[in-house]
Amino acid sequence: MRLATFNILHGRSTADDVVDVDRFARAVADLDADVLALQEVDRNQRRSGRADLARVAAEAMGAVDVRFAPTLDRWGASGRSQYGVALLSRFPVLEWRTLPLPRRPWWRPLPRGAGGRRLRWGWDEPRTAVVAVVATPQGRLTVVATHLSFLDGWGEHQLERLARGLEGAPRPLVLLGDLNLRSETPAIVTGWSPLVVARSYPVAHPMLQIDHVLADGEVRPLAPGRAVDTGLSDHRALVVDVELDGPGGA
């Protein structure tokens, strides 16, 4: 089966600065993922044409189950506008849950002309993880999708909390997402095995791997994972084909 994670930048391309929902749908279809984690997903946002991007992606890949977890949620003249993460699966999901992650206050930069001030004390963007127990053809697999903080040291703290919160989850388990942590750091923090080693950011000339696919339990990659330029976003998607070897794959 194929696993993928993709920070979609609300469907925008950095090449032309345009959100084209049809182009986004084609990009998702081309990934051909059986289980897909998405970050920076819009629902009813003006910048993305009021589209429900999780639903667009689900239809494009042929998902039978999808869960969108908003981390920002506002009401306005056009109704409820949301932004968050999503997990989509071509296989039935037996159990869903979400795990909110801790936030940290910080000095946020303000736009130019904001009363002469440059910084404002406030909270980091809310973060959460979506957890699904997926009934794959090879057995049950716990899949976790998340998007961690970019603040120095805080992503590691969130990942530690997430790993503790998943201690009782069925194995094998796979974590997918934009972790905002470089190279081998997520594997060191969790003790889990990286399934993809590939630079994913920035999209045109990737210098860093901040998107990750990690496994705890008997999940084996069938070939080296890869970073894919979809023509969208400031990130490349990560894709890896795997099989289950242990009790979960019996």
Rank of each mutant, 00 (worst) to 15 (best):
E40M: 09
E59Q: 10
P105L: 08
A29V: 07
G62Y: 03
D124T: 06
E95V: 11
A37N: 06
A37Q: 05
S89G: 00
L88P: 00
A77H: 15
L88S: 01
A60Y: 04
G113E: 07
R80D: 02
T71S: 11
G76E: 14
R80E: 12
A57H: 03
L72R: 11
V93G: 00
P100Q: 10
R108H: 14
D42K: 03
A33Q: 12
R46T: 12
R50Y: 15
P70E: 04
G76T: 10
D42H: 11
G113R: 13
V66S: 11
R127G: 07
L94T: 03
A86K: 03
A135F: 02
P102V: 01
A60E: 02
A69K: 02
G49L: 14
G79A: 11
G113Y: 15
L36E: 04
V35I: 15
L94N: 00
A132W: 09
D73V: 01
A25Q: 10
L110S: 10
G113V: 11
V131E: 04
S89R: 01
A57R: 05
G122Y: 09
R90G: 04
R80Y: 09
D73K: 07
D34M: 05
F68C: 02
L31Q: 14
A86Y: 04
T98G: 02
A51K: 00
E59Y: 11
R43M: 05
R112D: 15
W96R: 11
E125G: 00
